[in-house]
Simulated assay, not measured.
Amino acid sequence: MNQELRVAAYAVCVRDEQVLLARWVAPDGAKRWTLPGGGMDHGEDPYDTVVREAEEETGYTVEPVRLLGVDSVRRRYPRRLGKFADFQGLRIVYEGRVTGGELRHERNGSTDLAAWHPLKGVAALDRVELVDAGIELWRTKPAVGRVGVRGGG
């Protein structure tokens, strides 16, 4: 089984009780909303990753204003020739503030739409679990950067 690690950085941008999301297009064509962001290039700082990815996916200049935490997922995926991958995703989540640019959709990328959504309506969206994790990190701002973990004294 191949081990695969993907490190990515994402932004939770909230204004006027709305959150900025990008619609991800999966390899099988399924479309689900996600946080703006994506994979780090080798040697790239996560801060620079989230700025670059948010602009690519939404058209906005996003300033990371606070590190909210790290969300980690692990999955088993089928690969070619009957093999499987043991995948781990480390998602570095920042609180972001839009400082410029104009809303637009990504072309020829992993997302096809960008939009503001009311926070109260997020639960009704077809979305990836990262959206819920990011919003929970944004709401609770846990001291240890992980939801559901208490900081020691």
Results as ranks from 00 to 15, higher is better:
Trp138Val: 14
His117Tyr: 07
Asp132Asn: 10
Ala115Ser: 12
Pro118Trp: 01
Leu137Phe: 09
Lys141Met: 10
Ala133Phe: 06
Ala133Val: 15
Leu130Trp: 02
Ala143Thr: 15
Leu130Lys: 05
Thr140Phe: 02
Pro118Cys: 07
Pro142Phe: 09
Asp132Met: 07
Ala143Pro: 07
Lys141Gln: 14
His117Glu: 11
Ala115His: 05
Thr140Lys: 05
Gly121Trp: 08
Gly134Cys: 04
Lys141Gly: 12
Ile135Gly: 08
Glu129Asp: 11
Arg127Asn: 03
Pro118Glu: 07
Lys141Asn: 14
Val144Thr: 12
Ala123Trp: 08
Glu136Thr: 15
Ala143Lys: 03
Ala115Met: 06
Pro118Met: 02
Val131Asn: 00
Ala123His: 12
Trp116His: 04
Pro142Val: 15
Val144His: 04
Pro118Arg: 02
Ala123Glu: 10
Leu130Ser: 08
Leu119Pro: 09
Val144Gln: 04
Ala115Lys: 02
Arg127Tyr: 01
Ala133Gly: 13
Gly134Glu: 01
His117Ala: 05
Ala124Glu: 11
Gly121Met: 05
Val128Asn: 03
Leu130Arg: 02
Ala124Trp: 11
Ala124Asp: 15
Val131Gly: 00
Ala133Lys: 05
Asp126Glu: 10
Trp138Phe: 10
Ala143Gln: 15
Val122Glu: 01
Lys120Ala: 12
His117Ile: 13
Lys120Glu: 11
Asp132Phe: 06
Ala115Val: 09
Asp126Cys: 03
Val144Trp: 09
Ala124Tyr: 14
Trp138Ser: 08
Val131Met: 00
Asp132Tyr: 04
Lys141Glu: 14
Trp116Leu: 01
Val122Lys: 00
Ala123Arg: 04
Glu136Lys: 07
Ala133Cys: 12
Asp126Thr: 10
Arg127Thr: 06
Arg127Gly: 03
Arg139Lys: 15
Pro142Ile: 14
Ala124Ser: 15
Glu129Pro: 04
Trp116Ala: 06
Lys120Cys: 08
Leu119Gly: 11
Val131Asp: 00
Glu136Tyr: 12
Asp126Ala: 08
Asp126Asn: 10
Glu129Leu: 04
Trp116Ile: 04
His117Lys: 07
Thr140Val: 14
Ala143Glu: 14
Trp116Pro: 06
Thr140Glu: 12
Val122Cys: 00
Pro142Ala: 13
Glu129Ala: 11
Ala115Leu: 04
Val144Pro: 00
Lys120Leu: 13
His117Arg: 05
Val131Lys: 00
Leu125Tyr: 02
Val128Met: 02
Ala115Glu: 08
Gly121His: 09
Pro142Tyr: 09
Asp132Thr: 14
